[in-house]
């Protein structure tokens, strides 16, 4: 019987009892629940990581202008800017997260991890992590499995969808996955990995989904960059054994509770927040199709 990823306490207990690393039960789960083979899983993960790295490189190399024009080669500008605010590594991290997400906004190929709206966060963080620490691909793939286990729990106890839980559910979950993967890859203990997840969620709680004109562009692209930064800041805190105080399972519950009570105008409907600002509405008028037949209230089609 494989572990079903109901909560973090159970995941840790399972690993300690069986004396296996954190990624092992995720592998067992996929084999038992989805009838997959270990070989197929590793090759699927390698394909995902390859697509992630390709997305980063594509976004930094090719023309990236979205149909609306709101996304316009931002990642390249950040990457090439002569002054680094903190360090060249930080500048690369931010520009890579932007790059992969810009590829998503411009109809390029990405990995929805966990969702398309958050598809820049794992690529930006893992690409940079591998480069800085010289990690083998296999190590990163194990980190991806740990990230998948984190997402499986969040999906069950809260949500991964912006339309259900707001932006915290998408970029927040991706940042939590990334943070856990970073600490795992740097040799952190189970407690340190889960603490990184808890701290990340604490930083991302409450974010609403308020996309301008309903498009996956503003503020989604810059939020992928900030989420990548938070994943790293949380990992730095967690590795030093600084406690999140509120246990990770309770942080996930808080995310679910906030999502459940969030008004629907903040859940991907483009009715509130940035979407409802004066400029947001002006852009919406310009970008959205106006030549549309509106059926009268009573009449049904056909």
């Amino acid at each position: 019987m494989s572990y079903l990823f109901e909560d973090f306490v159970g995941w840790k207990a399972y690993c300690e009892e069986k004396k296996v690393p954190l990624y092992a039960p995720v592998l067992e789960y996929e084999i038992a629940q989805r009838g997959s083979t270990e070989e197929a899983i590793w090759s699927g993960l390698l394909r995902a990581f390859t697509v992630m790295k390709d997305a980063v490189e594509t976004g930094l190399r090719e023309e990236m202008t979205s149909r609306s024009g709101m996304i316009n080669n931002g990642a390249k500008k950040v990457y090439k800017y002569p002054k680094a605010v903190l360090s060249p590594e930080f500048q690369k991290l931010i520009s890579r997260a932007l790059a992969a997400k810009e590829v998503n906004s411009c109809m390029g190929r990405v990995v929805a991890a966990p969702t398309a709206g958050a598809s820049g966060i794992l690529p930006g963080t893992l690409y940079t992590l591998q480069e800085i620490h010289g990690l083998e691909d296999q190590h990163i793939l194990e980190g991806l499995l740990v990230g998948a286990g984190i997402a499986l729990i969040i999906e069950q106890k809260a949500s991964l969808a912006g339309a259900v839980g707001g932006c915290q559910a998408e970029t927040g979950s991706a940042a939590a996955m990334a943070s856990g993967a970073i600490v795992y890859c740097l040799g952190g203990s189970i407690d340190q990995v889960f603490n990184a997840v808890a701290i990340t969620i604490q930083c991302m709680l409450g974010l609403v989904c308020d996309p301008v004109a309903g498009l996956v562009e503003i503020p989604c692209v810059v939020r992928n960059a900030s989420a990548a930064a938070i994943a790293n800041s949380s990992a730095q805190i967690a590795l030093a054994d600084v406690s999140a105080v509120i246990p990770v399972d309770e942080c996930v519950e808080a995310m679910g509770e906030i999502g459940a009570n969030m008004e629907s105008k903040y859940k991907e409907t483009a009715m509130g927040g940035l979407a409802a600002t004066l400029t947001g509405q002006q852009i919406s008028k310009k970008v959205l199709i106006q030549d549309i037949e509106i059926l009268p209230d009573e009449e049904l089609p056909e």
Partner: peptide
């Protein structure tokens, strides 16, 4: 699936 969490590989944006 793990590949619902790390995936699918798809063309963006949504």
């Amino acid at each position: 699936s793990v590949f619902d969490m790390i995936g699918p590989v798809m063309i963006g944006p949504s």
